[in-house]
Design a protein around this nucleic acid. Structure first.
Length: 603
DNA sequence: CCCCCCCC
């Protein structure tokens, strides 16, 4: 076994500001810093064999290495990426080493002992330091200063910027307020107003990130107006003089025990030296839309797709909070031949122009699962980019403009109840033979079938006229109708359809039930029209119902055993009907043929 | 000081 040589004496040079590529060092100890819960930080005692530094910290993305036991005592590591930064009051505090990327060269178990007799670098001999007066590590020439906001003689801010000495986000706490951070905005909310018992106002919030960590910041009222336009996602800013307070973890998934609030003292200054900047870029973990099917409900998703369809802007009042919301649902497609619904909110929904079918990138969108379909929703901390200038976007554009989105096979948001995949094709005979519906949960399948018989008897009922109640009403006479669910009398009612019909495919036939919306779609008339015809105009009703006979459709069916007394019946309910897409259906038939015969196209 | 992002 060969142990790597340590970069002897290098810690003194690094800590005096020299930039050294890939120093090889030994971990002598690692311990968790006593900080508030939920913000996990590790401090390291690290040595180059001659000097040690006990003020080294692990950037949080490396915590996992410690969890995996890769950073035990005596481990030899190479630092692939690190910065030094000042913490403490007025820049007079400690300089810390923050390690954001490292490679294990020799595991601690192999090395087994401390190398050399290191002493603190603060006593380093002159010859170990860089020959010329070394610049602090962050002190690349700072770009020309923008006129800062509230930047009147801000000594701390200016001296920090001029010296290149900023504080790592992970070092911020409520106990010390002389700091300047240099951070990238990773997301920014819209302006939101509130009004409650304690008052009213407006605010916006943003997420900030640097090499060491991340933090949420919120600007209220005056600060909201003052800073909203200045703050832009992806830009880097110097920020100082905010209030810090414990983060309410209920509302934030950021890895920080604290959050900050802008105050009247807060100073924000755009930093435009982005091309040679130690602040990391926002990372997008883009996944194919098809992958969303297999992910957990509420999980965060970064993805990119073409906006193939745009829904109308919708307004509604949330039933629980009585707040009004605006939303718009759009459909994204990508090269996994999959489509998914994405919900935009507020101004983003109002201002969205989808008719040009732009490329849409989302970061941190949330999965909402309903009846087996999964859709995405933008929320706090998520961002959307329209036509981002990245290779993935150009690739998608080319794919889509050449007809790529024409044959989307996998509807990730389709409500099949069937779980992770598109609804399985099955014949009516196989559905029986395979005892579908006998489990705890319903089964779902689809088949192509023709309508044989449609029952007119009991094809409708009179329902409560309230929009969110479909309960059958009791005719009280005198044109009064009682809803027992709403416990109210109404002078009117609405018709609801409940169509029973026999459908058949080439293997078998079955009775199926269709509820209101599917019934309207099949009959091509509103429930009101159908109900009135059945009650008052038998000839019209006959015309409406017979038009459905011998028509073929793709039926998505829900199959479940239902118990009535001591009888168990296997019941089929039509979830949705669609016209036969012959291209799609033939694809399915070819696949079946290939499975039966082994002959056919490769996919 | 917000912390809402529904419904089906």
């Amino acid at each position: 076994m060969v142990l790597a040589s340590l970069s002897t004496g290098v810690i003194a040079r690094i800590m005096h500001g020299e930039v050294v590529d890939g120093p090889v060092l030994q971990i002598l100890a690692i311990k968790k810093i006593n900080s508030a819960a939920d913000s996990e930080r590790y401090r390291i005692l690290i040595s180059d064999g001659k000097y040690f530094n006990s003020y080294a910290m692990l950037a949080s993305q490396l915590n996992v290495m410690q969890h995996n036991g890769e950073l035990e005592e005596f481990t030899i590591v190479q630092l692939d990426k690190y910065v030094t930064s000042l913490v403490g009051k007025d820049g007079a505090g400690k300089r810390v080493l923050i390690i954001s990327e490292l490679t294990v060269v020799n595991p601690g178990a192999e090395v087994k002992s401390k190398i050399g007799e290191p002493v603190t670098y603060e006593n380093a001999a002159k010859q170990d330091l860089a020959p010329k007066a070394a610049a602090p590590s962050n002190s690349k020439p700072v770009a020309k200063k923008e006129p800062g906001h509230n930047n009147n003689n801000n000594v701390v801010m200016n001296s920090s910027i001029n010296s290149g000495m900023t504080h790592p986000i992970s070092s911020l706490s409520p106990y010390q307020n002389k700091w300047v951070i240099k951070a990238r905005v990773t997301s920014k909310s819209g302006i939101r107003t509130w009004s409650n018992a304690r008052g009213e106002g407006k605010l916006f919030s943003m997420d900030l990130m640097d090499e060491s960590g991340e933090i949420r910041a919120t600007a209220f009222k005056e600060q909201c107006d003052k800073f909203f336009d200045l703050i832009q996602v992806d830009s880097v800013y110097y920020i100082s003089k905010c209030q810090l307070k414990p983060a309410n973890k209920q509302y934030s998934s950021l890895n920080n025990a604290y959050e900050m609030t802008f105050s009247g003292e807060t100073v924000v200054q755009l930093c435009d030296d982005t091309d040679d900047d130690p602040i990391p870029e926002i990372k997008y973990n883009l996944i194919p839309i098809s992958d969303v099917s297999g992910m957990e409900n509420k999980a965060a998703v970064d993805t990119i797709g073409i906006c193939k369809e745009v829904g109308e802007l919708q307004s509604f009042v949330a039933r629980t909070t009585n707040k009004e919301f605006k939303k718009r649902e759009i459909t994204l497609v990508d090269m996994s031949n999959s489509a998914i619904s994405l919900t935009l909110w507020g101004d983003e929904a109002v201002n969205f122009d989808g008719h040009v079918q732009p490329v849409i990138l989302v970061k941190g969108s949330r999965i909402n699962e309903f009846n087996g379909g999964k859709s995405l929703s933008l929320g706090g901390g998520s961002i959307m980019k329209i036509n981002p200038d990245i290779p993935e976007a150009h690739k998608l554009r080319g794919w889509f403009d050449n007809g790529g989105g024409d044959n989307v096979a996998n509807m990730v948001s389709a409500r099949t109840g069937g779980g992770n995949f598109s609804t399985e094709w099955m014949t009516l005979k196989d559905a029986r033979a395979r005892n579908l519906g006998s489990g705890d949960k319903p089964d779902y399948f689809q088949c192509k079938a023709v309508v044989h018989i449609v029952k007119q008897e009991n094809a409708f009922y009179r329902a409560c006229p309230q929009s969110d109640c479909n309960k059958k009403v009791v005719d009280e006479g005198n044109d009064q109708f009682r809803c027992e669910k709403c416990n109210a009398l109404f002078p009117n009612f609405k018709y609801r359809l409940l169509i029973n019909m026999s459908i058949g495919d080439w293997t078998s036939n079955r009775w199926v039930s269709s509820f209101n919306e599917v019934g309207e779609q099949l009959l091509g008339h509103t429930s009101q029209e159908v109900g009135e015809a059945l009650e008052n105009d038998p000839a019209k009703a006959e015309q409406i119902f017979s038009a459905l006979n011998f028509t073929s459709h793709i039926f998505k069916l829900r199959c479940k055993n239902e118990v009535f007394g001591d009888m168990t019946r296997n019941k089929l309910t039509v979830q949705s009907v669609a016209p036969i897409n012959h291209k799609e259906y033939n694809k399915h038939l070819l696949k079946e043929l290939k499975e039966l015969t082994g002959i056919g196209p490769s996919n």
